[in-house]
Design a protein around this nucleic acid. Structure first.
Lengths: 338, 338
DNA sequence: TCTGGCACTCGCGTACGAAGAGTGCCAGTG
DNA sequence: CACTGGCACTCTTCGTACGCGAGTGCCAGA
């Protein structure tokens, strides 16, 4: 196993490299951290760390840089989560509090995260499938045309057009609206199907077709997975990555445009706390030189969606994790209030 | 004034430069376009064009590249709009037709534009202020808490919370809902204020406070300018710009994140047709080396929002203008149908 | 007015050498 | 046995020099 000092050396390498963006050599290390040993000793430790695969050198005769494995060890064992300072917390809260609706909350969250971490921020809209129904509204637009509006407890609104098989009277409409709401309001989305399946039976034969159509549209809306939307921001921060550009930035931008990829990325993190996926741990190869720090957030105790940042593997993990965690917490509060 | 041949030379320079991305010299020009004159003659013409400020040379002893002024002349006088081919038109239509709601229409439009032009696409959501009200819905969430939902003819949905000064009964709510809709449904947003101003008078004294609150929230929503949302896509195409990166791409990404900037940019174009703003014609300095091609689109005859692309000044103007115009046309159709 | 010719400019790629940073290894020491 | 100082070696980086090629501007002539 690695001795205590070798771990310290690794930690020092990560910290210095993150700070300077340049391979770090043995001499610089002893100067900047008082490890109490000489460069030569550090060199021996470095050789050992390299054998184990925690660090590597870009070319012979350059300093060392951490590998993905090295960052992994650093994140798991050598560093904690750096809490936000009180002023920062206040700033976060102030910034989020001005939001007027869900879109605004998400938009502000993205900006905030991007600004705090100086990286690319990704925020998933509160998922439909994990939330509860606040209200279902039905509007008559034409004799045989309805609009279905679904409002969730997180403030999200979905609307769908419904073309009815037969004209549907105002009184039937009011009836359906009332029955629907009394059954599903406050219930979880996953419970809705079984709660409404016998609804058509309560109506006259001529209306049943329409009721069924409305219900199936509703159920469709509930499960619609591709409706998992997200918002990203701070892409300009990508330009700070390396100086070796197009090659690095291109695939990342492409990946970010593929919402499917991002959703899968966020979805994979099951951990209740902050999750970090480093470099090649990300399935998508465009993101092989980036790390993703993500966490769930929710209006109540339970997570209804994820948010996170995408940045170079060479990032300030403790600070980023702290920012992500803090933002998630406050967004949760805001959602619970609204 | 510039002779006919000199204009042809300018056109040839623009076309070649757009194609090759490299400064074009007199010899190459005579080889690729049969102008019927020798390189020496072309050189004289080039010297004249340079004196007039239409072209420039990056360094002595390099070929010429068009200036912003040169592109401007090209766009205004030397090139038309290249119409889309029938297969392309069909592809556009097919791609847009699958959309399920407004968000989806906008999202698809962005993808489509980005793909067609291989540049960054920007689509503004149909503006609230220029559309008409389809329906206003009021929901009671708590005794003194309402949700106001506004649905526009373009399918856009806005919701707002309303905290009432006093509890508001179900019957009053139904009353208000009915009166509100009978007055404003189908009317233009700009007409709404005068249509509802005397509404509180129709209610009992105890309810007037709430009615006023609801109305002012509604009016606020109507004029809320900062709610002018937009969606962008195709940012990965930025990496095709020049090979001189960070410097070029950075400010563009930053400008794109500032929705305010983009909205102003799109808003400035008053022309009913396709508008092109080239390089320094864009007020924002981050966009000084890009061109913006934009056009209005709408569900009826009238434009309710803008869409366009942002790309390098060195772009295929006729093709881009054709694509933008065609997409706008089809999006308008889709919106009118839904 | 156009053309061919010619000298000139300048950016670009390659080659070479010096400088500097960092390493690995080894012998010596507490 | 762990640590240290010393030293030779490797490799990148940077500056300079140089030749090539593309392109120009100008001029004399048709």
């Amino acid at each position: 196993m690695l001795s205590e000092r070798r771990l310290q050396v690794l930690r020092a390498i990560v910290q210095d490299y993150v700070g300077t963006e340049e391979p770090v050599g043995s001499k610089a290390l002893t100067e900047r951290h008082n490890l109490g040993v000489s460069p030569a000793t550090v060199r021996n430790d470095m050789a050992a760390l390299e054998d184990e695969g925690f660090i590597a050198q870009p070319h012979t005769s350059a300093g060392r840089i951490p590998t993905d494995k090295g960052y992994r060890l650093f994140v798991d064992k050598l560093a904690g989560v750096k809490p936000m300072s009180p002023p920062e917390r206040r700033a976060i809260q102030n910034f989020l509090e001005g939001a007027v609706d869900l879109d605004d909350v998400v938009a502000r969250t993205v900006r905030l995260l991007a600004q705090l971490t100086r990286q690319v921020a990704v925020v998933q809209y509160p998922s439909l499938t994990r939330s509860t129904v606040r209200h279902v509204e039905l509007l008559s637009l034409a004799p045989a045309r309805l609009m279905l509006v679904l409002i969730t407890d997180t403030g999200r609104v979905e609307q769908r057009m419904v073309d009815c098989p037969a004209p549907f009277g105002e009184s039937s409409l009011a009836d359906l609206r009332a029955r629907l709401n009394s059954r599903v309001a406050g219930r979880r989305f996953t419970d809705v199907p079984s709660l409404v399946e016998d609804l058509p039976e309560a109506f006259e034969a001529e209306d049943r077709g329409t009721v069924s159509t409305v219900l199936s549209t509703l159920l469709e809306t509930l499960v619609e997975e591709n409706e998992e939307r997200l918002m990203i921001g701070g892409t300009a921060n990508l330009t700070r990555f390396g100086h070796d550009f197009p090659l690095t930035i291109r695939p990342v931008l492409e990946a970010l445009e593929e919402q499917v990829v991002l959703l899968k990325l966020l979805g994979e993190a099951k951990d209740p706390g902050v999750t970090v996926r480093i470099g090649h741990e990300n399935a998508h190869e465009g993101l092989n030189s980036t790390s993703v720090v993500s966490v769930g957030y929710g209006s109540g105790g339970e997570a209804v969606a994820k948010l996170g940042v995408v940045g170079p593997t060479r990032m300030d993990y403790p600070g980023t994790m702290g920012a992500v965690r803090a933002v998630a917490r406050y967004v949760g509060q805001i959602l619970a209030e609204s």
